[in-house]
Computed example of a mutant assay.
Amino acid sequence: MRAFEAVGRHMSFTAGAQALTVSQSAMSRHVSSLEQLLGKPLFERGTQGLRLTPAGEALLPVVSKCLDRMEETINTVRSARDERRPLRVHVPPSLLYQTMLPLLRDFHAAHPDIRIDVTTSNGIGLPPGHLDMAIVFDRPGVDDKVTDLLRMVRVAPLCSPSTAALHQGKPIEAFLTDAELLHMKLDGEPRGLLWSSYADQQRLALDTANGMAFDTMFSAVRYAMAAGGVVLADIDMYADEIAAGLLVMPFERIGTDGFGYYLKTHAEDLADPAVLLFREWVIAHFASGATSAPLALSA
């Protein structure tokens, strides 16, 4: 298994052998033995190098994760530490800052024995790396993870009261043409993806190529509140700011472009009480429809 994982990680028998400090012929024998045991090839060996077969693609991430878990457990036993490993949880940045920080605080207060390591990245779908659970921003899809829909995203153009007053009386197309559009960039996606999708859905002729772009919706919204411009934002995530008059929704033109927030978990991890507890906690929070006041952030 270790030989297969090393070769699959490096996609090379030579590099895998170097990583494990064994001979290339030994690596080849180990992988061949595993293939004989399974009765299926794990690699396609060609002139352009190695490629995983469907069986190899299915087996590699499971083997990698199991070996990592074994190593973590062995290191814990060696150091005589009587503590659980932390849960590795991914949360998109704007959801983390606006919604999840107080939720994580409350969960930690209720379950101080469960440690959580939080990572964030601004893309669509699952990020790379070894994770126990991930909240992702994505459209519906099918994969090998246990997937729970937390909520679908509803967006609308939002701006400061002064920006709305500056363009008062204009129809929505003229309003958005004359105001500066603020963008949220998504890793690996076109710059104006979200505005373009909204314009298509609302049948608006907009030039979505211009305007300032930010790496998080949180930053774009803060800029709209302080400096101007119009941001296409999640109206449920920023319901408190809208209710307080810090943000204005000039038009009741709410879009649903198919994106939502999903919680993804490995099926085999549901046997872990900490994973199960955190999953139930997150699902219950979103099911209640409650909004969490964001934690105060220093300037």
Results as ranks from 00 to 15, higher is better:
3 A>G: 14
5 E>P: 03
8 G>Y: 04
10 H>T: 14
22 V>C: 11
23 S>Q: 06
23 S>F: 09
26 A>W: 15
28 S>C: 02
28 S>H: 13
31 V>Y: 04
34 L>V: 11
35 E>V: 02
48 Q>L: 12
55 A>P: 00
57 E>W: 08
63 V>E: 12
64 S>M: 09
68 D>Q: 13
68 D>C: 10
75 N>S: 14
82 D>S: 10
84 R>F: 12
90 H>N: 10
91 V>E: 04
97 Y>L: 12
99 T>S: 12
104 L>M: 14
104 L>P: 04
105 R>V: 09
113 D>P: 01
113 D>M: 06
116 I>V: 15
118 V>W: 11
123 G>P: 04
125 G>C: 04
129 G>A: 09
129 G>I: 10
130 H>V: 11
135 I>T: 06
137 F>H: 15
137 F>R: 04
139 R>E: 14
140 P>R: 14
140 P>S: 08
146 V>N: 04
152 M>I: 02
162 S>G: 02
163 T>C: 09
181 L>V: 08
185 K>Y: 02
186 L>T: 11
186 L>D: 09
187 D>E: 13
190 P>N: 08
199 A>V: 07
203 R>S: 12
206 L>W: 10
211 G>S: 10
218 F>L: 07
220 A>G: 15
224 A>G: 06
225 M>A: 12
227 A>E: 13
237 M>L: 13
238 Y>P: 07
243 A>F: 00
265 T>Y: 00
272 D>E: 07
272 D>R: 04
281 W>E: 10
281 W>D: 15
287 A>T: 01
288 S>W: 02
292 S>H: 12
297 L>V: 05
